[in-house]
């Protein structure tokens, strides 16, 4: 996996606007390689069709929620080591515990700035490298 500004990031969110917002924020902090998916099902399709270095996924999505997508990623040996940043409007305790148990790398609560997103990504990458 490549952890630099050229890494390919999969952004999963059912709201096209939020995907665009995250793409814009990633661009501001130097990440240009962004692939989009609208839910967990299509995200798994993207994972199987190309090399993905990092996943940023929303929690609340129809078809397959972010937490179910995370569990599917961690259950597949081909993808299980890909860093997974959960984006959520839910910072409720029970949800955080569930995400940590399922193997989330970190989580970020909406709304957030480019600076906060950058810190979260860097923290995950440092941990992966360390």
């Amino acid at each position: 996996m490549d952890f630099d500004k050229k890494m390919r990031i999969l952004v999963v969110d059912d709201f096209a606007t939020m995907r665009k917002v995250i793409r814009n924020l990633l661009s501001q902090i130097g990440y240009q390689e962004v692939i989009e998916a609208e839910d967990g099902v299509s995200a798994l399709r993207e994972l199987r069709s190309q090399k993905i270095d990092f996943i940023i996924s929303d929690w609340n999505m129809p078809n397959m929620s972010g937490i179910d997508f995370l569990k599917a990623v961690r259950a597949d040996s081909k993808f299980s080591s890909i860093p997974f940043l959960m984006v959520t409007a839910e910072s409720l305790k029970d949800n955080v515990v569930e995400a940590v148990k399922a193997g989330v790398s970190n989580y970020i609560v909406k709304p957030f700035t480019a600076e906060v997103l950058n810190k979260k990504i860097e923290k995950i990458i440092e941990k992966m490298k360390g």
Binding site: F15, T17, P111
Partner: peptide, 23 residues
């Protein structure tokens, strides 16, 4: 559609932040 999409997302975020406060 793009505006409606954004309104949905703003609603979702306001709800999330408020619910955290209510928690």
């Amino acid at each position: 559609g793009e505006i409606e999409d954004a309104v949905g997302e703003i609603t979702n975020m306001v709800s999330g932040v408020a619910r955290k406060d209510l928690e």
